[in-house]
Design a protein around this nucleic acid. Structure first.
Length: 255
DNA sequence: ATGGCTTGAGTGTCAAGA
């Protein structure tokens, strides 16, 4: 089973890239973040024609998450239960017996800001919910844009980014608390090239200079991690005209 | 120190991203 996550930074703009990537990579499921549209603007028909059913938790202009699947989607859940939130950042469903939780974790803007406090509250609510969710679904994957670089290895310039947003101690501790639930960072199950990143700033030629961060992750519960055979960041779509600033990431899980 | 670029909204220019 091949499962993937991609922050597309507007699905309307990026639909051609998504369709090309689905055709090339043939994932069983793809989790999208930042669709930036309401359901009425979501390209259900085009995805269906490509062989994918889809569920969406959308909103106008900002955020918006979706899961695409070639094998149907069961037990659909939108948002974090019991956490009051206007922003559409979570959608979950079961595909082939695997619970997929698609997350667009808040950016946080600046350490100490109101948005930063929201990010930390949001992460605490996510963690509490997942603890419960994992008892119901032992085979669980948390995929998406975490807006956290877990380690200095995941940062092109750790000195410049020290204690900055995406790299602060509190954010990294929140990431660790997700791992403490029994989730594993699939990317670090395997030997990886140094300076591997999943996001590069549009500005100042970030991609050309590989001035990036690894902030898009696929965390796997133990039964999935044991069967995981690869975890990959696909930089190819970042090289296209009008790319998303994020690359898709994917894992392969043996039967 | 700041902005660099992209998107959506909406038609002038700003918020938000990371």
């Amino acid at each position: 089973m091949k499962i993937a996550a991609w922050n597309v930074n507007s699905l309307k703009v990026r639909l051609p890239h998504v369709l090309d990537w689905l055709a090339a990579q043939q994932p069983d499921a793809l989790c999208l973040q930042e669709t930036k549209t309401e359901d009425k603007g979501f390209p259900f028909a085009e995805l269906e024609a490509a062989g994918y059913s889809a569920i969406h938790n959308g909103q106008k202009t900002y955020n918006g998450v979706a899961i695409l699947s070639r094998h149907g989607l069961e037990d659909v859940q939108r948002d974090i239960p019991g956490f009051a939130d206007e922003q559409k950042r979570i959608i979950a469903a079961t595909v082939n017996g695997v619970r997929l939780v698609c997350a667009y974790i808040p950016n946080g803007n600046e350490v100490g800001s109101e948005k930063y406090e929201y990010k930390l509250r949001w992460l605490a609510a996510l963690t509490a919910w997942l603890k419960d969710e994992m008892t119901r679904h032992p085979k669980l994957a948390l995929l998406g844009d975490y807006n956290i670089a877990p380690d200095d290895r995941d940062v092109h310039d750790p000195v410049a980014w020290k204690d900055k947003i995406l790299c602060s101690e509190a954010e990294r501790s929140a990431f660790q608390r997700l791992l403490d639930l029994g989730l594993q960072d699939s990317f670090r199950l395997f030997e990886q090239a140094e300076q591997s990143f999943s996001w590069w700033d549009y500005r100042a030629a970030g991609f050309r200079r590989n001035a990036g961060l690894r902030i898009d992750h696929i965390l796997l519960s133990a039964p999935l991690a044991q069967k995981c055979t690869s975890s990959t960041i696909d930089k190819a779509p970042r090289k296209l005209e009008r790319p998303s600033d994020h690359a898709p990431v994917f894992v392969e899980i043996a039967p």
